[in-house]
Deep mutational scan, measured.
Amino acid sequence: TFELKGKVGKVVKIAEDHYLVEVEGDKWIAYSDEKLSLGDRVMVVDVDGLKLKVKRIP
């Protein structure tokens, strides 16, 4: 999972307290300090167990 840091993915689902992002064909639970929208491109900035911390990228 640490090899996911720096990888780019996209938001595929928005849940009440987390996001579902697809990175390299796999779906992961993710969270972010900013509000994300469906389809946003994101970069993995940290890995916390099986959850990814992501940030939006242009």
Rank of each mutant, 00 (worst) to 15 (best):
S37L: 06
P58I: 08
H18A: 08
E3P: 14
K5L: 10
K10A: 15
K27S: 12
K10E: 13
V21T: 14
W28P: 01
K10L: 15
V45D: 13
E16Q: 15
W28D: 01
S37R: 05
K53N: 15
W28N: 02
K35Q: 15
R41M: 15
K5E: 14
I29W: 11
R56A: 06
K27G: 07
G9D: 00
A30F: 01
E34A: 07
I57F: 10
L52H: 02
D17I: 15
Y31G: 08
V44G: 01
K5Y: 15
T1D: 14
L38Q: 12
A15L: 09
V11P: 02
K35A: 10
D46N: 04
D17S: 10
K55I: 15
G6S: 01
G49I: 03
G39E: 14
K27R: 13
H18M: 11
L20A: 10
G25N: 12
V8M: 07
V47T: 06
L36V: 13
K7T: 02
I14L: 09
V23K: 00
D17W: 08
D33K: 06
G49P: 11
H18N: 07
L52S: 02
G39L: 08
D48P: 03
V47F: 14
E24A: 04
R41D: 14
K13Y: 09
I29H: 08
V11W: 00
D33I: 06
R56G: 12
K5N: 15
V23M: 06
G39Y: 08
S32F: 05
V11S: 02
G9H: 00
D48L: 10
L36W: 03
D33F: 05
V23C: 04
D33W: 11
G25P: 13
L50M: 13
D40F: 13
L52D: 00
D48F: 04
A15H: 10
Y31H: 05
K13L: 05
D26E: 12
S37A: 11
H18S: 14
L50Y: 13
G9M: 02
V42A: 12
D26M: 05
G9F: 02
V11C: 04
I14F: 06
V21Y: 01
E34I: 07
K5P: 10
V11L: 14
K55L: 15
K7W: 01
K55Y: 07
L52K: 01
G39S: 07
V11N: 03
G49H: 13
L38H: 12
E24T: 10
G25S: 11
E22S: 05
D17T: 05
D26R: 10
I57D: 15
K53C: 04
K13M: 08
E16H: 11
S32A: 11
E24S: 07
V11F: 01
E16C: 05
F2S: 13
M43N: 09
V8P: 10
V8H: 15
Y19Q: 10
E24Y: 02
V42R: 00
V45M: 14
G6N: 03
L4I: 07
K27Q: 08
S32W: 08
K5C: 06
V11Q: 00
K5M: 15
G49E: 11
I14P: 08
V45C: 04
G6E: 02
R41P: 13
Y19L: 10
G6D: 04
D48R: 05
T1S: 14
E3L: 03
E16M: 12
L36A: 06
F2V: 13
W28L: 04
I29Q: 08
K7E: 03
S32L: 08
G49Q: 06
G9W: 01
L50E: 08
V8R: 05
D46F: 03
L4N: 01
E24P: 02
G49W: 08
V21M: 08
K35T: 07
A30M: 07
D33L: 03
E34S: 07
D40N: 07
V47K: 04
E24V: 06
S37E: 13
H18V: 11
L38K: 07
G39A: 08
E3Q: 05
V8A: 05
G25V: 14
K55H: 09
T1W: 14
P58W: 06
V47S: 03
S37T: 10
V23Q: 01
M43G: 04
D40W: 08
L38R: 09
V45I: 09
K7D: 02
K53Q: 11
V23E: 01
W28T: 02
V12A: 14
E22M: 02
K27W: 10
R41L: 02
K7L: 02
K55G: 15
K5H: 15
F2A: 09
R41T: 13
W28I: 06
K35L: 13
A15F: 08
L4W: 02
K5D: 13
K51H: 06
E22T: 05
V42Y: 01
L50D: 12
K10T: 12
L50N: 08
K55F: 08
H18W: 05
K35M: 13
A30S: 04
L36R: 01
Y31F: 11
G9Q: 00
H18L: 12
